[in-house]
Write a protein that binds this DNA or RNA. Structure first.
Lengths: 213, 213
DNA sequence: TAGAACTCGTACACCAACGTACGAGATAAC
DNA sequence: GTTATCTCGTACGTTGGTGTACGAGTTCTA
């Protein structure tokens, strides 16, 4: 709740604005690697005294919140640039590639946030991206390319779990793979969950048109 | 490393054995809900003095390790009872239903362990169940019912992420659903990832025999 | 160039949870 | 029934990170 455009307050001085930006950036960078990075670590990484940090963020939670908010907004902007028109299946593929890069980058930050922020806050901040995915899923269902036998909310959840799970593994150093390959696995796996399943039972004919997966 | 059958040490007195059992049970119960439960919480829940607890577990990490070990062994025993013969697809369905119950029960315990235990230890303890899943996946591939275009290790990972992700959501209170329904979603989602994808391209004929998903 | 805003070091109070020390009393083992 | 083991309360030392206090110096802003 500290820092960032506060309505009705006198504008911050330019150097303060600069400090804040550096701190938030450092927080994203450090917390994106080690969820237990201390305020001191972050201040150092920002090239700023710890006291300066506390001048702008009353508590560690405040800082984490700001970092996450920044990361999400940033990501949301990137995702907004993804072309979601046309075939929902292909659109989802594009969206996933972009999302993966973002998620992988902030893997640990999310963990840190979950530990420090009040329950629900993390969710609240993710509403934007989640809505984006949800919307696309819904469109895919209308187009008949995504399955309709599970709630949209559940599907969106699964997408997130695969994304974050993979990101965690990468961070932990298990899972050695070329970045491109990883992005591919994630995409394939998620699309497999979303796609309409092959028709059940004895009628093998009316399967949905094959997809390059 | 404390507690639990130590080779070559004089046997523990019966009451000590009993205390240990109660402590481990309490640890599983409490840590299964709140990953930040303190040693004091756990001792109280076990109906035992904190000092007694420290008499058997030198450190908190020791305790968490014991709790997780116990949970995994316990689960492994349950899973060993699942019939994995015959069609791998159906076998996996059975395995998932059992696994889900276990994972859901110890959701937070895993989180606690990740925070306290040395990196890799959690993985090590999960080797048993993971191997079980991996083995079945491999068999499914041989049978031609599971996809072969992604490494087994990756697939196993995805299964875990969906399982644990869903468990976390339940614990956090989001995701209101009947338990049975949940188990169903998990199963469907996982199987969707594992199943051979519909044939790509123009040849819509040779799709694998439809599956009731 | 005056003054407000900002930086930042040192030093410290604080807090929660961990883990230890001591020792009297209960209880199992033989 | 004797002895080693175990229980468990109180009290204390430790640690590591958070947040505050003070105050001198620096840099914007106007």
């Amino acid at each position: 709740m500290t820092a960032s455009p506060r309505p009705g307050a006198r504008p911050r001085r330019a150097d303060a604005e600069r400090s804040i930006a550096r701190i938030v950036a450092a927080a994203r960078e450090r917390l994106g690697t080690d969820p237990n990075a201390t305020t001191d670590d972050i201040a150092k990484a920002a090239g700023v005294g710890r006291m300066t940090l506390y001048g702008h963020f009353r508590t560690r939670a405040d800082l984490v919140d700001a970092a996450l908010r920044d990361a999400v907004e940033d990501g949301d902007r990137t995702l907004a640039a993804v072309d979601l028109a046309g075939d929902a299946y292909e659109a989802m593929r594009r969206l996933l590639v972009s999302s993966w890069a973002l998620v992988a980058e902030s893997a640990a930050l999310l963990t840190a946030a979950q530990g420090v922020l009040p329950a629900g806050r993390v969710r609240e901040l993710h509403e934007g991206p989640a809505a984006r995915v949800g919307e696309l899923v819904r469109r895919g269902r209308d187009q008949g390319v995504f399955r309709t036998d599970m709630p949209t909310a559940w599907l969106v959840g699964v997408v997130q779990h695969i994304l974050h799970g993979a990101a965690e593994e990468v961070r932990a150093g298990r899972l050695e793979m070329a970045p491109g390959e990883l992005s591919d696995m994630v995409t394939k796996s998620v699309l497999a969950v979303l796609a309409v399943p092959p028709a059940p039972g004895p009628s093998p004919a009316e399967t949905p048109p094959g997809r390059a997966v």
